[in-house]
Design a protein around this nucleic acid. Sequence first.
DNA 1: GATGAATGAGTTTTCATTCAT
DNA 2: AATGAATGAAAACTCATTCAT
Lengths: 217, 217, 217, 217
Amino acid sequence: MAPRTRASKTGQALSGRPLRADAQRNRARILAAAEATLADKGPSASTEEIAHRAEVAVGTIFRHFPTKEALVEAVFVAGLRQLAEQARRLCTAPEPGAAFITFLTEAITRSTAKHAFARQMGGDNTAVMSRGPVAEAAQDLRRAMTALLDRAQRAKEIRGDIDITAVVALLVGASRAAEHTDGDERLRETVLAVVVDGLRPRDADRWAREDPSPQDQ
Amino acid sequence: MAPRTRASKTGQALSGRPLRADAQRNRARILAAAEATLADKGPSASTEEIAHRAEVAVGTIFRHFPTKEALVEAVFVAGLRQLAEQARRLCTAPEPGAAFITFLTEAITRSTAKHAFARQMGGDNTAVMSRGPVAEAAQDLRRAMTALLDRAQRAKEIRGDIDITAVVALLVGASRAAEHTDGDERLRETVLAVVVDGLRPRDADRWAREDPSPQDQ
Amino acid sequence: MAPRTRASKTGQALSGRPLRADAQRNRARILAAAEATLADKGPSASTEEIAHRAEVAVGTIFRHFPTKEALVEAVFVAGLRQLAEQARRLCTAPEPGAAFITFLTEAITRSTAKHAFARQMGGDNTAVMSRGPVAEAAQDLRRAMTALLDRAQRAKEIRGDIDITAVVALLVGASRAAEHTDGDERLRETVLAVVVDGLRPRDADRWAREDPSPQDQ
Amino acid sequence: MAPRTRASKTGQALSGRPLRADAQRNRARILAAAEATLADKGPSASTEEIAHRAEVAVGTIFRHFPTKEALVEAVFVAGLRQLAEQARRLCTAPEPGAAFITFLTEAITRSTAKHAFARQMGGDNTAVMSRGPVAEAAQDLRRAMTALLDRAQRAKEIRGDIDITAVVALLVGASRAAEHTDGDERLRETVLAVVVDGLRPRDADRWAREDPSPQDQ
DNA sequence: GATGAATGAGTTTTCATTCAT
DNA sequence: AATGAATGAAAACTCATTCAT
């Protein structure tokens, strides 16, 4: 079995040489198509269908990604990277609480793909999460989110008793909930509001923050 | 057209005649095995594996459920029914708020199977949700939950601005979040606490409640 | 492996003891149902469907006939016996030619079952034809038909250059043709007329028979 | 709905683009193997066996024909087309009667496949006959045969009282009869002779033809 | 590099046959 | 004897992956 010269398990080119321009474009098309297809057909979407949507042949997909799993991973990693990017951007925003909420909102709103991934990974997602580039991207995102969360908690805008792990779980869940609203904008907002409110500090803290004078009369 | 005396599309016996005792037992074993298997292998778990787990031959599964989809549906419906049952039971509990919270907690804790279903149904779950016994069971559950919610809202234990649809979405999401905690008890509690707090009425209302003087004038 | 006490390979009871009255009735129902079902669903008709049509359970069929093939054979043999019966009856009819034609007509008209059998036996029907009760019944029918044919040929009503083998082939083919007419009475008659005319002696013979004086003016 | 780029329900390429050379060759091999296999194992011949005979993998068959039924249909249609071709060729032959007879002979001689089809289609072949490409091919063949028949009837070589429908039924039946002769050349000829004679005009007509002076006054 | 046909292991589904009730 | 549930081998069909063009 000759050493594979095409693509590594993670969909990165093995050679240092950059991809030809058209190959680059194809890679992007494939990722986009995969994201879209997985989002609306679920993890059982066939490679053939993804190829169809990307307007390339199946073979092309397998040139870029050695296995279907690698493709799905790549989609997931791309999503995680975007989120990490966003988190870092918001880390320098003036209002820590608002920044955190904004992050959640955006993450929830366009998180379909991650979800598809989670679904794809089915029962043994832990396996995937702990290895390779997914783990790295997840680590990175976690770090960025931790920073955001810390700032918000220090500003007393978010309850102090939750940690990053809980936030991640909530994010995943909220995304799922949002997905379940199936397009109803108002409904999504309500769901988000509940989660956000739940993350706010208890009353005592808020009095302290929002208005120095007690409003209990 | 149907010489098929086996099982209807929905896995209900076609004739009014009840199943033989052994058949009844097998049906239950199959449902249990399916729930477990789907829960930990995801929707792509093979029928063969389910059969193995149920210690029956594949053919037996197909005698009870004409299609893999029908089996998955049946698992889902069973879950919905259990929940509805639980909701109805709690409807007569003394403390409306506590009852509602209890319901959420339990629902979230053992909702893996529903989830597997949602995953299985993939992109076009709406199609399945609107047909047949799934739709009926869902309707029924919704009714029971609505009653629970109403009581809790009338008692001012739950914010008045959320409706049953939002609760369902939240339930789905919270289940997903809980699933993501992957066994960490404390984490699950935290997540639940956030959602529950988010559902509580805003401060003004709560003072009113905690303070014996009626706030409704 | 205990000696089978149920039914021999050919569907005859093994013990000398006659069947119980109800068993007898069931056997007949099954044969009738099998004939009908095979006729209109083809050889792929399932045992279950035959059972359904006979209003018995599958198990009952297998009590009477050890295999599906045995059942189909039995249907076939029954058909052959009826035909042989008929042939023998017509052997004593006053007009040899008319008798032969009548036989053909009747055989063709209700030969669906044989056909189903032929279809069932698919490519290797020769195997079945040469063994056991089928072969016997076929032999017997052939004998009876030979007698009919001989009489008709001696009476110069049927061309002398065809033998029983050809007649059998023609009978099979004509049955198939009749089947193809799918209910069109007139069409069936036309087809039959062609075959019958084709079996008539050539002109010279006929002159001799129909009118002693030559009719060529 | 169809990401399927493989084969349409009828086994025709979906896109206008012609098949690659190797695909074309495989398609032909598959059809040939199917014809042969169906002919000698009957309609219950498994796809796997056909694949084996064609020396391709099962998947290849399903790439070309989405369904086993589609494959069988394709075999049938191919047979019908060949016959139509032949009929058209003979339509310009000098001797109308001989041309018609020649057609029958050839059709009967190599009609095994059609037969297999008829068998496959079992009881509800009418359904298949009335839809799509089968119906078209059948129509076309019928047209070509009608022309042949007309010419022969006008030349008084074939009785005037039979129509194309009867000819088709006879053809089907004669094919079946020929199949029943199972290789006996002489027997097949005898059978054919009977049918052909049966199709000849009655004596009076033939005199008319052979003798220029009309006999109808 | 891209294409799309071929592969073949895996999955769902059917059905003759057996067996407990 | 009859019933109908259970069995499991075999069939149809799918799809990730490979490979010739």
